[in-house]
Amino acid sequence: MTTTDQKIEFSPENMQLVKRLMGEYPEGKHKSALLRILHIAQKQFDGWLSADTMNYVAEVMNLKPIEVYEVATFYSMYFTKPVGKYVFDVCHTGPCMIEGAEKLCNHIENRLGVKQGETTPDGLFSWRGVECLGACGYAPMLQLGDSFREHLTPEIVDQLIAELKNKV
C-alpha cells in the first residue's frame, strides 16, 4: 500500500511529459509546472503523495522539498495519506445538497461500510464529501479520477461500485 518500498521514479512517458511541462514556462520559472506535475506523481504513485514522492518531485524539479510540501498541503485534490484505489469525491455544496447529495453520501457510507475519509479494508474504496465541482445542473454527482459521474441515484452508485470491484 505505501510507496516507500517501491522505487520512486517517473515512468519514461511521465518523465517526458514532466520535462515538456517545465519547458512551457520562461527560463527559471519552471516551478509553475508544480501543480500539474504533482497530479502526475499522485496518479503514478498509488493515488497519494508520500514524503518520498514529494522529495522526488522536488529533486526532479530542482526545488526545495518545502516548496513541494506547502503546495501539496494547500490544495484539496492532493492526498498526503494513503487512499483507496478508487476515491469517490461526492459534491455536497448548495445545489447538489438540494438535489439529495446528503442522502447519496449516507448511501455510499452504508454501502462501503466506511466513514468519509476512510478506506475499505480491501484497499479499494475511499470516499469524502467535497465542495462544489462545477456540475450543479447535473446534480447529484461525484468525481472519480479524471471523470465526473452525474445525475446519480443510489442504484447508479451501486452499479458503479460493482463495476469497479469486477475490474480488479
Binding site: L21, E24, K29, K31, S32, A33, L34, L35, R36, L38, H39, E67, E70, V71, F74, Y75, S76, M77, Y78, V130, E131, C132
Partner: peptide, 22 residues
C-alpha cells in the same frame, strides 16, 4: 495549466500565485 482544488484560485491574484506554482 491547472489547479488542484481551491476555490480561492478563481481570485485573480491567488490564481497568479498558483500559476507560479505556489
Amino acid at each position: 495549466t491547472c489547479g488542484a482544488g481551491a476555490y480561492i484560485c478563481g481570485e485573480e491574484t491567488a490564481l497568479l500565485e498558483s500559476l507560479e506554482g505556489k
